[in-house]
Structures are given as C-alpha cells and as structure tokens.
Design a protein around this nucleic acid. Sequence first.
RNA 1: CGGGGCAUAGCGCAGCCUGGUAGCGCACCUGGUUUGGGACCAGGGGGUCGUAAGUUCGAAUCUUACUGCCCCGACCA
Length: 439
Amino acid sequence: MRLTNFFLPVLKENPAEAQIVSHRLMLRAGMIRQNSAGIYSWLPLGLRVLRKIEAIVREEMDRAGAVELLMPTLQSADLWKESGRYDGYGKEMLRIVDRHDRDMLYGPTNEEMVTDIFRRDVRSYKDLPMNLYHIQWKFRDEIRPRFGIMRGREFLMKDAYSFDVDEASARKSYYRMFIAYLRTFNRLGLKAIPMAADTGPIGGDLSHEFIILAETGESEVFCHSDLVDMDVPGDDIDYQSDLMPLVSKRTDMYAATDEMHDAAAFEAQVPEDKRLSARGIEVGHIFYFGTKYSEAMNAVVAGPDGKPAPVHGGSYGIGVSRLLGGIIEASHDENGIIWPASVAPYDVGLINLKSGDEATDAACADIYAKLQSAGVDVLYDDRNERAGAKFSTMDLIGLPWQLVVGPRGLKNGVVELKNRATGEKVEVSTQEALTRLGA
RNA sequence: CGGGGCAUAGCGCAGCCUGGUAGCGCACCUGGUUUGGGACCAGGGGGUCGUAAGUUCGAAUCUUACUGCCCCGACCA
C-alpha cells in the first residue's frame, strides 16, 4: 500500500479525551475514531490489526475443534424471557422495539441464541461433543464506557459455546478451550495468565479469567511469578489427549484477581520471592455452567439409554477488539506502538527519504514491487514529506521493520533496515535487506 | 448510578472573572526556499463560540434548562 493512496490520519498531539496510552496511541496512529461514548469507527489501519487478531483467534478455535458460525447482532427478547435473563440482565442490555412492537435486543452475549440453534437440530448424544463459536459485534450499555476500545459499549467478541452429554465430558471441552486460549494469547505476543474467577451473572462453578499484565490494567492481580513465563503448548498439541495435566500445571498455582484474592492463601502457597502482585487486563473468560440454559430452554439430547437429558454447557469469550488495546498497553514506547509481528498491520514500512528524487523513487518502486510479489505486506511512505515526519509516523504506527531508502545510502549501495522493537539499525545492500525481509 | 470536570476551527488551547460581535500553535491551500529524526518565509481558507431560552442597547463572556464528552467510584469481554 502506498501511503499517498491510503487513509492514515495521524495526530501529532494527544487528544484531550484519551487518558491511557493505548487509547492515545490508537487515536494518534489513525486506527480508530470515536463516534459516541464507547462506540468507535475502525479506520483502515485499525481494521487491519483487528482482522489479524481475529484470524489468529479463528485459527486456534478451529484447531481446538470448535466450529464457526455467525449469529445476528439483533435478537428476539423471547429467547431471553425463556432463559429468565431478560429481566435479570438489567440496563446493560440495549432493548429495541421494532415496527411491530416486538421486543428486540442487541445481543450482549449469545447463550440463549446458540442454545436455540442447538436444540432445534441436535437430537443425539452421538453428535456431541460440539463447540460452536462466532466472532460478532456485541453491545453492552455500560454505565461508564472508558479507556477507548478497552471498555467500549460496542465491541467485537469471539464467543464459543460447548455442548456435552455430561459433566465429565464438558470439563474436557473446557480444558480444550483453556489450552486454546493459552495458545491464542501467546501467538498474539501476550503473556496471559489464567486466574480463578467469579462466575458472575452467567452462573456456574468453573471459570477462569485470562489476564495480561499491564500497568494500566483495571484489576489488581496476585499470582505465582512462574506462571508469567510458563511454556505454552505448541502446534503439535493433541486436543484429543488428556489435557488435564497441562491445565492443572497452571491452576494448581496461586493466581487470583482482587475480588477472588485471599491474602492468607497467597502467602501460604507462594514463596515470598515468587509472589507477584500487579495490574492486569482481562482479555478472555471461560465458564462451565452445566445445565443452566439447557434446562431452562429444554435443550436435550437422547443419551445411550434413549432417554433425553439436558446438555452440559460452557461458554468461552475473547474480547477481540479489546485485545488491540491490551497489546498496545503491553507493547509500546515513548515513540508509539510496537506491534508483535503476528498482528502488525503491515510487515514493513518502506520509507522513501526523498520523494521526487529519480534514483530514490526508482529504488523504492523496485523494492516495493519485490516485497509485494514475495507476499510481504508493505506500507510504502511515498509522501512528499521530510524525513523526520516519515520516521515519526512510522515509529508511531509501530510496524516491525522499517526499510529506509535515501539518496545518500544509495550512492554507497546501501539501505537501512531498522527493527522497531529494538531500535537496532543496520546498513545493508538492497538485496540483503530484501532477503532479511523474506523477499 | 453517586461524585467531579469540560464543551470556542480538524487537533491542542487562550479569550469568559471585569459583556462591545473571536484569537494563538499545529494541521490544511497557494508560491518560494528547503529536505537523513515532526523545516522556514510570504500569502490564504475555515469557527460566529454544544443546544435552547432568558437578562441586556449589545452575550463566547452573565442566568437557567437540556445535551454531549471526560475523569474517580460501584459493575463488565
């Protein structure tokens, strides 16, 4: 993409309304614009990152055996009346009346709807276990939206729902999601720690929040420091195997958010030099809730004995849009964002130091073409701006690599390759630079 | 929802107290000089001051109501 052909409205100054770093940087880097409280438009650069995160979440869900579908954002109130949550959910649910005076709502979550889909077509225990997920916009009419995309009212969430014939099987489904979450966050460049969680309004008795550590996190967390850098299962993970040991390895160690924290237990279970207390951001939450919805909504399957029994369910959420904020909180410096390669909007920023200079333009055009044909995502800053402005913009938007091409270097047959994360710059030949970038 | 704050050009702000019809920096447009870490000079465009009412000869400025946004707290992916 040529920058002269793109839409990247960067801001030099910090917008007054943005208080935390991820919000400021997302606004400054031209990723989002606010439309009303807690509601944002995703500008091209932000959307690219959102899509990349979404793709990784999708891959890991699929790998773990979940199946993607897509449910609507608007739901009929009838389903919620059936589960008993229509009145219970409160003002956080945005209620809408259509032209026929039917009560509708903008879905804050989809347990009811997915249970309805399930019960209409699944009849036998032989079809289980089943895990259905979608990645869809949600709306929760938060009393106080804040921190930009981190706590918006409208947000993109991946929510998965498991269906099992009994609790033992449901726990296996839960473990699969547990491992899938570890892998997902790891691929996003995040160190997410599963922590025992309150089950909240959804109910149930087995639940973990996945927390990433960040100074600006909303909740205070306490855990065994070994959890932070614990190895994550690799690509060869067998989701059909017994995952409980992998899960227990983590859940056996102390980890709790402030509302679940027990100072005495913390001190008893964790040696003093391993006690970590920090701030954290919740990026995922998994629940096992048993037959709560299946009983209320009569989602039953025939068991081996031919008798119908309510299915055991779990739900598994990842705040996809929130993750952008989380990643930025965890990865930035005073100059801007530092994207992990896996989610960077482009792999390389190509900086033409002297647009209009024939030799430099030609060299950049050549490099640009070669990177593109090699499948490297490149953002080419071909604007007629001064070098400083281009460097600043590129640092701000945080692409992993900057390839700097100027007349001075070209005379000596070199270009400069800069690593955004380390700041390290090397002068190499054009060919060497292309090779290093995978072209 | 309780408490606090703000609302003036795309962004950041001044002007308001002590009413007289709007200004600065950045950004934008034109011309020129520049060009390796957010250039400089000259010229120019853009707002009637969140909305509505009131007080007044006159309101960005004073009064009232409303709306929007931000921050702290309680709640949430």
